[in-house]
């Protein structure tokens, strides 16, 4: 009797997760399979009538695309510099918003507001602010005696501007940290107080370890996001100037839609997927050493 119940339970389990299974097959496996299939062909478009299997040729010739290396390096820049900066920014903001002062709810709303701005509108606003001639930023800086800088149009400034933009719209990550901070048990701090620990020490020996799962989560989400970043670069500066903000996914988009080399775009996507999987795997492995889970001890 017990056994039959268990069998039945397995069936029920599948029924409960059925929506996901359907979605997974339809909107994931099928498109993904299509991508893999085409990456071994020379099809210019999906559904093209004429194509041939070319084996690994696309993967080998990937590097012939003049923008390939540059866009890969740009994306690595965002991953290597953007992820830590944005994550640290989120954490600092969460600590600020965790202050127990009057009116903090209002501050939270204002800090979160940028996250709710549609990306196109964000780009409009940032163009207004960073506009080298009529923007408020340069006007403010000139009061401090600084020369006009072409932030969005400059080869060396565009990437930092995009990272800054990510901090500006980082509200969701801030919320995750805020929730984690609220979950740190009060009694730990009380104990530390009795020991006479300094604020800094409290932060590093209690807060940080306790919220480390959230940090890992945010870092992984941020890493994936930065690997895939595209819309910001497209809308802000069309990836320019001189491909300074041309990200890897932007180049995939270009391969498919502008160069009309769909199969090449698919190979590049699979390359990126492998890269993301590898980096995430390494992050997870490393994290075992640093991330503290309650209940583990």
């Amino acid at each position: 009797m017990m056994k039959s119940l268990r069998k039945y339970d397995t069936l029920l389990f599948f029924l409960f997760i059925m929506p996901w299974i359907i979605g997974f097959i339809t909107f994931f496996l099928i498109p993904f399979g299509t991508s893999v299939f085409y990456s071994f062909t020379d099809a210019k478009l999906p559904g093209a009538v004429e194509y041939e299997f070319v084996g690994l040729s696309n993967f080998i010739h990937m590097i012939d695309d003049p923008i390939f290396m540059k866009s890969l390096l740009n994306t690595m820049y965002f991953v290597v510099f953007g992820v830590p900066i944005v994550t640290a920014g989120m954490l600092v903001l969460a600590l600020l918003l965790n202050f127990n002062v009057r009116g903090i709810a209002l501050f939270r709303t204002f800090y979160y507001l940028p996250t709710l701005v549609p990306i196109v509108a964000t780009v409009i606003i940032w163009r207004l602010v960073f506009n080298s001639e009529f923007g408020i930023l340069n006007a403010g800086l000139s009061l401090l005696g600084m020369a006009k800088t072409d932030w969005i149009g400059g080869e060396h400034t565009i990437k930092p501007v995009i990272i800054l933009l990510q901090v500006w719209i980082s509200g969701s990550g801030v919320l995750i940290f805020l929730a984690a901070l609220k979950n740190v048990p009060m009694h730990l701090y009380e104990a530390a107080d009795i020991d006479g620990a300094s604020r800094l020490r409290r932060f590093f020996s209690i807060t940080l370890p306790m919220i480390s799962p959230s940090i890992l989560f945010v870092i992984i989400i941020q890493t994936m996001y930065n690997f895939q970043m595209f819309t910001e670069a497209l809308l802000l500066s069309k990836g320019g100037p001189n491909y300074a903000a041309y990200t890897f996914v932007y180049n995939i988009y270009k391969s498919a839609f502008t160069d009309l080399k769909f199969s090449m775009a698919m190979s590049q996507s699979i390359f990126l997927f492998a890269l993301i999987a590898l980096v995430t795997f390494v992050l997870m492995k490393l994290s075992n050493r640093f991330v503290y889970y309650e209940g583990e001890k």
């Binding site: 498109p31 995939i252 990126l272």
Partner: peptide
């Protein structure tokens, strides 16, 4: 359960760009 759940998380990792055009065709 423990076999399938990692797959759920794995799907978070796929660049939407891979799906963009094949999904369009679908």
């Amino acid at each position: 359960r423990d076999k399938l759940f990692p797959i759920v998380l794995l799907t978070l990792m796929i660049p939407p760009s891979i799906m963009m055009i094949p999904s369009y065709v679908l």
